[in-house]
Amino acid sequence: MPQPENITATGLSVRRNGRDALRDVSFTLQRGECVGLIGPNGAGKTTLLRAVFGLEQCEGQSSLAALPASDRARCAAYLPQGRVIAWPVPVRDLVALGRLPYVERGSRLPARVADMVNDVLAQLDLSGFAERDATALSGGETARVLLARALVQQTPFIIADEPAAGLDPAHQISVMRLFHERAAQGQGVLVTCHDLTLAARFCARLIVLRDGKLVAEGPPEQVLTPQLLAEVFAISARVEATPQGLNLSQMDVLADLEGERG
């Protein structure tokens, strides 16, 4: 199957409990770009990712969701926000599950999968964990093992829901840098992230959601203005351009400030 050059979502809308969880969101993700999806809690980030993947009942079109399930699994890897590892399987076997879409029914995983798994574990600083039980890991280790599972899928696109949440600063930076590098190597990455400075530094483009609507889209310098931060995130912040990228100092919550003044 020739792999598509982009994923296109057109007019995605999701209604849940009589409320618009997502309203008429359209965007395109190209191969070779790392796009950050940002927005406050409950803005619809996860709903959008699930809708793009076809895991959510929705109106509108997603070129990814339109693919047959087996093709979709070879086109894009999805890293859900909930970090589920149900059984104490060895880390190596858990990561190898990422190769399932390539295995014919009933046949065993080919031997070279072991090499792929080793490579990805090494990239994520997890080489010593290969034989450990996957349920006996710390929160940060669990997150990285699951990321390894998505990377070993070796798809043209990666869609990751909060991959950096709960990691220590060094691992947060390395995870985001890894996505940045993957994009430079030609993969298309869509990633949600609550750390705006990290998102600004490693994503070439940001998509901002609020109340299920797309409210801004573009390069970080254009999107992350003090006005937008005030409107969407209700925070006051100082934004400086530095050689390493945008630097955000988040100062205070606007509603509280008003409350104090009032």
Binding site: A73, L97, L100
Partner: peptide, 23 residues
């Protein structure tokens, strides 16, 4: 026995299993 792969994939939860092509 035909669902062995699906049960393996479910180790990662329903969403991840579905994204791996499991019906």
């Amino acid at each position: 026995a035909t669902q062995a792969r699906a049960l393996d994939a479910l180790t990662l939860g329903e969403d991840a299993a579905a994204s791996l092509g499991i019906d």
